[in-house]
Design a protein around this nucleic acid. Structure first.
Lengths: 338, 338
DNA sequence: TTGTATGCGTTATCAT
DNA sequence: ATGATAACGCATACAA
């Protein structure tokens, strides 16, 4: 391994001089600096991140936290998109990324400890149970964090615009003549609460009376639970004409149930999802859904985090909202005039 | 930050003693060791990975390389599945994972330099252009590597069984009565060569004559190019009755083209994909395809790599083959007797 | 403009 | 069984 010591010997200068030259310090003569840089390149010198981290207390490494417990594993398209954009943005700014998890090998650590152990300069909390004490500990610590789809007090966060998204969906469905709209929602997180409130508010604004049995609880990204709720909705004396699902993946459970009962989409039942993952647009009929700007969310998260890391003095917590886009798709039938 | 120095003061012993006790050295008395461990826990001590890496030359960190140039970005289901299982297995064995890329911030590095810079103990090369000199440099270096779906000489690798997979597909299609089978293949990588050879060999074994214009080049994970090749196949005087696609995602391009021409699947044209990603089984009709054991491949890759890292003496390069599974799906029509 | 000295937190070697 | 010491590679305060 080539170190600054090797370079200093080769150049006949001290290690301090080499270090300064390599870091572009002002108090090194042009020629010396050039000579040093040239031999560094010739020797194939690479800085040692560990030594630097030890010395500086800065690792140029940011943690990314995907807790699979919530079903938000990396392999879900929505999250892998976010991961990809966080990675791209962070790398562009000179930061590597490392996954933060519980329990590394036989050491048992919580998230905060893991991040500390790796001297992460900050952590993007991309998907997690925000009630988990371990998450709260991390978000309350001195480590800079940015959360996605949840806001901790005095912390930065990137929020998908759930209120507007749900409103757009309901208005769209309504515009196609639907009046009996059911909503299968996910676990009662803050995201769900926003969507629920927006659903009710928009329905009220449109003069729709939604019977309580049209609003049903399920689990995000779990087709099975949404399938069961679909069955329950179909068993009602007065069926809805359209069902909104917690997310695109959950819709697949509903799709199976409708298939099983021989009902066609959207002929016999209109449906809509949420997320707008690529999968949804590959289905036939194309799913009506609301696309969340995952890519932009990831980028912004990385930017906000690194900004906080690099300018801690002037930093102020921010809640950024990223807008999505209605994908009309083909699963909401126009029933006006029927 | 709590360091071993703090513990040594609290316990009235030397730092060396603390270090030994914490690492379970034999030459520390039971009671001292216990006292040290207890106060370490009480003080909330965490080892510092950077210091340890600097001292030991081991980082307990492994790199994962997904070069997006090949279109194998993390957000592709096949790769995100692999990433997830590499991560899970590595973490279970006490290793963190870091993405290895070219060009971190304004430093320009190649893959090898990036891995060195972060003192990675090893690298899983999950998706890459294996002709890229930068990849070759990494795989020829002193850093332990495991490649997926490609073998470098004297290196470990995990291979999906492409020969058997293609054979299974062709035999399945043949068993349904198809004799005019077209194959749209990806770029000419070693994987493609195996699939192509297996395709031809199996066809020959079955007594099928495949005209050269039935074998067409496209690009992996690129629906567009497969769509164009589909169009070309449909324009032939003698159309095939079944088209094999480079992968499930590429099939989507073919699907669109068939839709556009008003052809039904599998009524007017039978098709099959490759990979068996979850998406393929959510489509209607369900795609006939061959599922690659991504999860197992990731696990094995991590195991093989860490084995090599931890027992460099007894290590021998291995090529492990992971078998997949035929998913019959509903896109290959039974045309026997027509 | 350059060099000297020191320490970041850890572990390994060698004394005691 | 325990401790003193040095070293890993780097950056910085300070001296020259």
């Amino acid at each position: 391994m080539v170190t600054i010591t090797d370079i200093s010997k080769a150049c006949g200068v001290s290690r301090a001089t080499v270090s300064k030259a390599l870091n572009g310090a002002a108090d090194i003569s042009q020629e010396t600096a050039k000579r040093i840089r040239d031999t560094a390149a010739a020797l194939g010198y690479l800085p040692n991140a560990a030594a630097r981290a030890l010395k500086l207390g800065r690792s140029y490494n940011i943690g990314v936290l995907f807790s699979d417990a919530t079903g938000g594993g990396i392999s879900h398209e929505y999250f892998s998109r976010i991961l990809e954009s966080v990675k791209a943005e962070a790398e562009g700014l000179g930061y590597d990324i490392t996954f933060i998890s519980k329990d590394l090998g036989r050491m048992s650590m919580d998230y905060y400890e893991h991040a500390k152990y790796r001297s992460c300069d900050g952590v993007v909390i991309a998907s997690a149970d925000f009630q988990d004490p371990a998450i709260i500990r991390l978000a309350s610590s001195e480590i800079p964090t940015v959360t996605l789809d949840y806001s901790f007090d005095s912390r930065s966060s990137i929020l998908s615009d759930n209120v507007r998204g749900m409103e757009a969906l309901v208005r769209f469905v309504h515009s196609r003549g639907h009046r009996r709209i059911a909503f299968i929602h996910g676990e009662l997180t803050s995201v769900t609460q926003k969507r629920l409130a927006s659903f009710k508010k928009t329905c009220a604004a449109l003069g729709l009376e939604i019977p309580p049995e049209y609003i049903r609880p399920a689990v995000y990204h779990d087709p099975r639970s949404s399938g069961l709720q679909t069955r329950a909705l179909l068993a009602l004396p007065q069926r809805p004409t359209c069902i909104l699902y917690p997310d695109d993946l959950s819709y697949l459970g509903g799709m199976s149930e409708l298939e099983r009962q021989g009902l066609s989409i959207p002929g016999d039942m209109s449906v809509a999802g949420y997320d707008g993952i690529p999968l949804s647009q590959v289905l036939r009929p194309r799913l009506s859904t609301y696309r969340q700007g995952g890519k932009q969310m990831g980028r912004q998260a990385a930017q906000l985090l690194i900004e906080q890391i690099e300018q801690p003095e002037t930093w102020i917590p921010q809640q950024l909202t990223v807008e999505g886009e209605l994908l009309e798709g083909d699963t909401v039938r126009d029933i006006r005039g029927e």
